[in-house]
Amino acid sequence: MSDRVKVAASTIWGILKDAGIETAPERTSSTWAAFLRSQAHAIIAADFFETTTLTGARLYVLAVIEHTTRRIRILGATAHPTAAWVTQTARNLVLGLEDAECQVKYLIRDRDGKYPALFDTILTDAGIGVILTGVRIPRMNAIMERWVRTCRRELLDQTLILNQRHLLHALREYENFYNEHRAHQGIANARPLALLPEPITDPNRLAHLNIHRRDRLGGILHEYEHAA
């Protein structure tokens, strides 16, 4: 008679789970997608992008997005992204995160030469690790890259930018619109800084909806809400 006892895979999984041991291959490796999902609440991502004015002047914009909430932060826009300017945006970012009590552990960015070493140092001193994406692998920063495309399509491609001051004004308006009014499919059609409204169940209200529209930037952006 054989002394062997057959044990189901689910039984082994349960024993390992009770012992706090992950099953292979998670014990030895983790994919980038798994890391982003598991740490989304603690991740922000940054990126530079550029636009041009009516006179052909080139302006650079630096923005940061929170992975979980999709909140966007426009850190600034300038014609000359010097080391001093970029470093100051890092200080402003850290202060803004502290004021919002946002617990961030990681910042994802590409290897753009406009980031000085002091940019990473300031974040590291604040307890935020900087993760560099691979060379020519924009998918590693997909959420930020997607926002840049959205900003271009919904704002910059629809606007004739006069100068740096005009660009900053337009970006601030879009930042408020994006964070407080625009629904996001990635977070169940919620808004980063505003709760979803209570659903309307009253048949009379459904039959006589009173919707108000507010235009921003001369009608480029539209905000809709139920009348009080």
Rank of each mutant, 00 (worst) to 15 (best):
F49I: 04
T121K: 12
E101G: 12
D112K: 02
A90I: 04
A90F: 05
I72T: 13
I65F: 09
G76V: 06
L107N: 00
T68N: 13
Y60T: 07
L59F: 03
A90W: 07
I65H: 01
K105A: 11
H67L: 15
A79C: 11
K105G: 11
T51S: 12
K105P: 02
D99G: 07
T68W: 11
Q88A: 12
T69E: 10
T87L: 10
R71K: 14
D120T: 10
A100G: 07
E50P: 02
A117V: 15
P81W: 06
G127Q: 02
I65N: 00
A57V: 08
F48I: 05
L54A: 10
Y106N: 03
R58A: 04
V94K: 03
A83R: 13
L107C: 01
K114D: 11
D99W: 11
I74E: 02
C102Q: 14
F48S: 01
G113F: 04
A83K: 10
V86C: 09
T69V: 10
V86S: 03
F49S: 04
P116Y: 11
R71V: 08
L93A: 02
A77M: 09
P81G: 05
R70L: 11
T82D: 11
P81L: 06
A84L: 14
T89C: 13
D120A: 13
V86I: 12
L95S: 12
V94F: 09
K114T: 08
L75E: 03
V104D: 02
L118N: 12
A126T: 01
L62Y: 01
R91F: 12
G56T: 01
D125T: 09
I108T: 03
W85C: 04
R70M: 08
G96Y: 04
F119E: 01
